[in-house]
């Protein structure tokens, strides 16, 4: 019973954190909150790793005089989690720097507005009116107008204009 409860708590907690993080990223509009949601999801994944190395009634894997023959938990996931936390810190720092710059440029933290302005920027820089407008696309149909045939006839056959 207790094992079941612990099981649910641990695995449910880890998976819950991951899912909460993902839902946060999907549903939140504020980009700062999105960064936080990402951190929550990372925490969930880290928790899953730690659980993987857990065993009951075991001590930390540090050899001291008294711990000679005692059961120890798995040191590998601990090392992995250490690494992944540090990685997470680096990514979050970069994300925050980007949040700051995005805010300075677009004066908003709303992901929807940012996306709109970004699309406009890209469209402007490439000289396209809008991605979803009805302007001639790359694979537009090459149906020549019948009326144009006669005009070009002279050019192609080497005739005078």
């Amino acid at each position: 019973m207790t094992t079941d409860l612990i099981h649910w708590l641990l695995y449910g907690g880890a998976m819950g954190l991951i899912v909460i993080g993902i839902v946060g990223v999907v549903t939140l509009n504020n980009i700062f909150r999105i960064v936080l949601a990402l951190a929550i999801a990372e925490a969930g994944a880290n928790l899953l790793l730690v659980i993987a190395g857990y065993r009951f009634d075991a001590i930390a894997p540090i050899l001291t005089g008294s711990s000679a023959n005692q059961l120890m938990v798995d040191p590998v996931p601990q090392a992995m989690v250490l690494t992944s936390i540090v990685i997470g810190v680096g990514i979050q720092a970069l994300a925050l720097a980007l949040v700051v710059k995005v805010y300075q440029n677009y004066k908003t933290l709303d992901i929807g507005e940012i996306h709109q302005q970004l699309s406009t920027d890209i469209d402007n820089s490439s000289g396209v009116i809008s991605l979803l407008s009805s302007e001639q696309p790359a694979g537009e149909r090459p149906l020549p107008e019948p009326s144009a045939q006669h005009e070009t006839a002279q050019l192609n056959q080497g005739g005078d204009k």
């Binding site: 993080g21 993902i22 990223v25 980009i31 999105i34 960064v35 990402l38 999801a41 990372e42 990514i91 970069l94 994300a95 980007l98 949040v99 710059k101 995005v102 440029n105 677009y106 940012i114 996306h115 302005q117 970004l118 920027d121 890209i122 820089s125």
Partner: peptide, 18 residues
């Protein structure tokens, strides 16, 4: 270092982070 690059990279980072 354009605004668009920052915004695009942010979205890239979030996707990649997830």
């Amino acid at each position: 270092r354009t605004g668009a690059a920052f915004a695009a990279t942010f979205r890239y980072l979030v996707m990649s982070g997830l």
